[in-house]
Simulated scan of single mutants.
Amino acid sequence: MATSALVPTVLESIRPDTFDEDGLEKLRFLFSDTLVLAALDLIDRESVIKYKKPWGGIQYEVYGSTANYTVFPGLPGPSPDNKSSSYCTCPAFAYSVLLSRTQIMCKHLLATLVAERLSKCIERNIQPNDLAALSVRHCAS
């Protein structure tokens, strides 16, 4: 079984009340120590923001050290099996995941997925005008 196929299983095993050394070891089995520690640091710094849209949608943003990135953890897949895919607007995702295929995700995406499982996302409601400003800010950076 490919490593990327194990990701959903490992993430589903993470629970807020039982995340311990075992959960950490499962993450370290799939991802480098550097990636896991960077993602957990983002969560500890409360950098994963979950915006709830008025019409029921959700958008994630991760505050990085140099910029903020929009993360899309569950995009519908274009393939016939309709597997979901993920995307982050950071340069590391573009290079390491999409171009060189040396990683299966960036620290922002991993932080978003783990924070969601641990109920550690900072939740904010967002209005349509705020969402438009958020989108423009990302296009300008």
Score class of each variant (00 low, 15 high):
5 A>H: 08
10 V>S: 06
16 P>I: 02
36 V>P: 05
24 L>D: 03
30 L>E: 10
14 I>P: 03
39 A>M: 10
32 S>G: 12
36 V>C: 13
31 F>C: 05
17 D>A: 08
15 R>D: 03
25 E>D: 11
14 I>N: 01
16 P>Y: 08
22 D>K: 06
14 I>E: 08
11 L>G: 04
38 A>N: 15
31 F>Y: 13
31 F>V: 13
8 P>K: 06
14 I>K: 02
6 L>P: 00
37 L>C: 06
21 E>V: 10
8 P>I: 05
11 L>T: 04
17 D>E: 15
10 V>K: 03
38 A>I: 00
21 E>F: 05
15 R>H: 12
28 R>T: 05
39 A>K: 01
12 E>G: 03
20 D>G: 04
13 S>N: 05
11 L>W: 12
9 T>A: 11
39 A>G: 10
38 A>L: 11
11 L>K: 02
21 E>Y: 02
13 S>E: 05
10 V>F: 13
37 L>K: 07
34 T>K: 14
9 T>Y: 13
21 E>L: 12
32 S>P: 07
12 E>H: 08
16 P>W: 10
32 S>A: 11
15 R>L: 08
37 L>Q: 15
27 L>H: 06
7 V>E: 06
24 L>C: 08
22 D>H: 12
7 V>F: 12
20 D>M: 03
27 L>A: 13
18 T>G: 00
16 P>F: 07
11 L>Q: 01
11 L>N: 03
5 A>Y: 00
28 R>L: 15
38 A>F: 01
39 A>S: 15
28 R>V: 01
